[in-house]
Every structure is written in structure tokens, then in C-alpha cells.
Computed example of a mutant assay.
Amino acid sequence: MSCKHRDYLSREEKLRRSYYEVLRDELDQFALEYSLVESYNNFLKVRNPYPFVELRELKPRARIPTVESDAQNSFLIIFTEDLIEKKHKKYIRYFDANKTTKNNLLRHKSFPDVENFNRDMKFFETRDFFSLLRSLLPIDYALLIQKRHNTMARYALTHFHVRIDWPITEAAEDLARDLRYISKDLYEKGDEYAEDFQKKFFEYYGIPVLAGGRRTAAIVAARYFSSFPGIATIYVSSSESRALLRIDERGISKSVLVRLEENDIKKLVDIAGMNLNNFSKNYVIARQRKNYICIFNVKYDHTLHALPSEGGRLRELKPDTNWLTVSEEQILPRPSVINHPPIPFKMVYS
């Protein structure tokens, strides 16, 4: 995503961005907990083995199994730095009918505690914000968190059941123009060329072409918000991928649960400079016999083929080139832990 760099912000805008990033850190931890840790516990409750992601699935262009499970928590959250202007409602479908008001929530049976709803719950700073967020996540489509109107830096969960209606072809065309694979129209070089680029559009965001609805909506939203001056962060969790995909101005990352053996734990303990007991307390989600369950995070960078061309020159698409490369791999602390950092640990190509 491209947004206005911090160096070009006013002091007021810098303060707002700093506040946004603090709130985003909190949302990161909530999303990890709900997507991964609570999903793992869901599988335990129904006595089904957890379907751990194979490391090969984290490689760029990997083929991912399409097996789904109701025990995996799925959701789509859009968190924008700025208020979304009304002109964007054509493609980002937020209206009075899907505002987070008590009357609107009464129409949705999946919202369990509407009688105790109060209007302050939707504000990020309030104690009950994450309770409200959690209760709305099972509802289809996206949840929208954005800056409130006429406030410098107060954020709220303003809308639920938000559809992303920008066509994939238009999103792909927008990216193709930016990267100079076309001059204007996606089909200007023929149907096959357009189809090939749409496949690369999915690869650009790290998901397979046949990805389900939430992940497809997530990458279309990511592309749509890429032209905004403010930051937008997209979180999507799906039962197919068993992963939390996060897209923001810095790029793409995926977080999954991994099962580590004792040899791996010994290496991690040495890297972190702590004893096993301290490591288990701060990084281990669960134990499976001799194995340790941890959160593994992978960050990706775009290759030269997925960056704007030098000098803005038009170029030809080469479908066989890789558009993503693994840039960072790390074991994350448990979501509730605040005083321990991620531990660098390479696994994808080991």
C-alpha cells in the first residue's frame, strides 16, 4: 500500500498516526488471539485434531488445500486511519442500515447480547470495545473501524456487514497500470494477457487464485485503499488457510500456529537468552505431548517484477516470475505478553 509518508505529515497528522499505530498494535494482538489461539481451542473442544499449516504452504505461490472447518474462526476487519468519504460508498458498502446501532443489530440473530448494547461500546478506547468486536466477527462480510467524523483521533467500529463491491478486474487493472504492465485497459493486450495478470494480482497479495470470498474481498479492499493518503490495515482469517493474513502500508504478513519439537525449542531458548520455563510462559500457546505450539509469523517483500518499473516504462508480463519473497520469519510471543519481542527463526525453507 502507498500512503503519505510520516515525513510529509503535519504535527497534528503525525500525532494521529502515532495514535493509530498504538491502537493497531492492540488490534494485532486481538486478531492473533481470535484467529489462531481460540481456533486451536475450538478444535480441542470438538475433539478434532488441529490442521496445522505445512511450511510449504507459506512459500510464495504455494498451493493451499481447500479443506474448511467450522472450528476455525473466520473474519475480515478493515481499519482505516482516516474517515472514508461518502463518494466511496459505491464500492465500500457502508450505509445507515449497517451502522453499529442497537436497532440495526436487533435485525441480526447472530448478535447475542444486543439488549446490553450501548453506543459507547463501539469506540476503540472503551473497555467493552473488543467484546463488541468479538460478538460481530461471525457476521458475514467485513467490519469497518475508522476515524469518527469531526474528531482528530477517535476511532470506532462504525459499520458491520460491509461488502467490498469493487470488481476484481478493476482492482487488477489499477495494479497493472501502477506497475506499468498496461497503459490504460486490462484487456488492451488481449484476453489471455488480462487473465494472466489477474492471477498475478492474487499472487501480489500472497493468496491463491481460487481463494475464498473473504480473502478475495480483503485483497480487493487492500488495493482500493492503496490510493488513500492514510493507512489502511486489513486483517483476514479463513478456515481454508488456517492463517491470519495482514495487509498494510508495509506489505504482507501471515501468522500461523506451528508445532515445534524439542530441538527447535532449544535453539529458540538460546536465541532468546532465556530458560525453558520462561520461554514456555511467554511464547508457547499449548503442548502436544513433546511438541510445543507457537505462533509463527512470515513477512513478504515484493520482487522487482511486482514493483513500479524503472523510469515508468511499459513492460511485458512474465507469468512465470515470482512476485513475492520471504523477508522475515519469527516466533511471536503469546498475544497477552507485552514485555517480550518476536524471536527471529527461519523455518519456511529449512
Rank of each mutant, 00 (worst) to 15 (best):
D7Y: 06
R11F: 15
K14L: 11
L15K: 11
L15I: 14
Y20I: 05
L23F: 09
E26R: 08
Q29F: 07
Y34I: 15
Y34Q: 14
E38L: 10
E38Y: 03
E38I: 02
Y40I: 02
L44R: 14
N48P: 00
F52Q: 08
F52Y: 14
L55M: 15
L55V: 10
E57P: 01
K59Y: 01
A62C: 05
I64N: 03
A71D: 03
A71R: 09
A71P: 01
Q72G: 00
T80K: 00
E81Y: 02
K87R: 15
K90G: 15
I92M: 05
R93M: 06
R93S: 14
R93E: 12
L105H: 00
R107Y: 11
K109M: 10
P112C: 04
V114H: 06
F117Q: 07
L136F: 00
P138Q: 02
D140V: 05
Y141H: 14
Y141Q: 14
L144P: 00
N150S: 08
T158Y: 00
I164R: 01
D165H: 09
D165W: 05
E170T: 10
E173W: 01
E173V: 03
D174Q: 15
D178M: 06
R180T: 10
Y181E: 05
I182F: 02
D185I: 09
D191S: 11
E192Q: 12
K199L: 13
K199V: 10
F201C: 02
E203S: 07
Y204A: 02
I207P: 03
G213I: 11
T216K: 15
I219W: 04
A221P: 00
F225L: 08
F228N: 03
F228H: 10
P229I: 10
G230H: 01
T233C: 14
Y235C: 05
S237G: 13
S237I: 11
S239V: 06
L245P: 01
R246H: 07
R246Y: 01
D248A: 09
K254H: 10
V258R: 12
E261N: 15
E262D: 10
E262S: 11
I271D: 04
K281S: 12
N282F: 07
N282P: 02
I285Y: 05
I285W: 08
A286G: 02
R289E: 15
V298I: 13
R315Q: 13
P319H: 14
D320R: 02
T321I: 14
S327Y: 13
Q330G: 02
I331A: 04
L332N: 01
L332V: 13
R334M: 13
V337N: 07
P341L: 12
P341K: 15
F345C: 04
M347H: 05
Y349M: 10
S350I: 13
